[in-house]
């Protein structure tokens, strides 16, 4: 895509390593994601996909290497600087993780109020707009336990957007959903992808990858085996290991929507 020549790097992984105890999980990853790109990360279970994106916002700490965000090193970041970085990066979890004691609107408004210092009125007005945007304008006063999985995930996306992030990270946002709810979440993600926000999406929704990704990154045992535009990734010249992974995904025992 033309992204590569036009936009500057936003996330740069520089020989990134992560091990838990003595177990290596990410084993030397170099990867550049440019502003406005939509990058899908896929790979077998345990290949380190979650770990990789959790390193970006410091939910996991680097063992070696560095991740530059907008040219700034994040390796040793902590305290206020780390918190400030996190306000610029939205994270959407597989299990939604909405704040259980707050309504949908209050979930969305909490961090803008308490972290960014918006007034309650401003934050709730923005929350109402975001709820409209994810198709839940009438659900603002519902508690998470009163919403379906798909609705919860859409609120979670709205909550991430409320911080006006430069980067959105998704960790298998549709994997915990009943099949009939996957579409509504993907629809919201599609509109985001088209809005030119930088997205890194761990997902096995290959329809999403094919249609909306600028690049697909294939991870296996903590290293990048393939990094290609979807037409090449899914085409004849794709990596053999990735081909095997895809055929397993598409086998009848592992149905994929989209």
């Amino acid at each position: 895509m033309t992204q590569d020549t036009l936009s500057p790097p936003l996330i740069e992984f520089r020989s990134v390593h992560k091990h838990y105890g003595t177990v290596p999980v990410i084993r030397g990853i170099d990867l550049t994601i440019r502003r406005g790109e939509v990058v899908v990360i896929c790979g077998p279970s345990g290949s380190g996909k979650s770990t990789l994106i959790r390193l970006v916002n410091g939910l996991e700490r680097l063992s070696a290497g560095d991740i530059l965000i907008d040219g700034q090193s994040t390796a040793g970041l902590d305290g206020a600087a780390l918190r400030r970085l996190r306000t610029r990066i939205g994270f959407v979890f597989q299990q939604f993780n909405l704040y259980g004691h707050l309504t949908a609107a209050a979930n969305i408004a909490l961090a803008p109020r308490k972290v960014l210092g918006l007034t309650d009125a401003e934050a709730f007005r923005a929350a109402a707009t975001l709820l409209e945007r994810v198709g839940l304008g009438d659900k603002g006063d519902r508690y998470p336990s009163q919403l379906s999985g798909g609705q919860q995930q859409r609120v979670a996306i709205a909550r991430a957007l409320a911080m006006r992030p430069e980067i959105l990270l998704f960790d298998e946002p549709t994997s915990a959903l009943d099949p009939e709810m996957i579409g509504e979440v993907l629809a919201v993600m599609r509109s985001l992808a088209e809005s030119k926000i930088t997205m890194v999406v761990v997902t096995h929704e290959m329809g999403f990858a094919r249609e909306l990704a600028d690049r697909v990154v294939f991870l296996d045992e903590g290293v990048v085996l393939d990094d290609a535009p979807p037409e090449r990734f899914f085409g004849a010249t794709g990596h053999p290991r990735a081909k095997r992974f895809l055929s397993q995904l598409l086998s009848p025992l592992h149905q994929v929507g989209g």
Binding site: R83, F91, L116
Partner: peptide, 18 residues
């Protein structure tokens, strides 16, 4: 509480105490 509650808060820029 699910550990995800804390992670969600941290990822939004909340600190340990907040």
């Amino acid at each position: 509480l699910s550990p995800g509650q804390r992670e969600a808060a941290l990822s939004q820029g909340f600190g340990h105490w907040s």
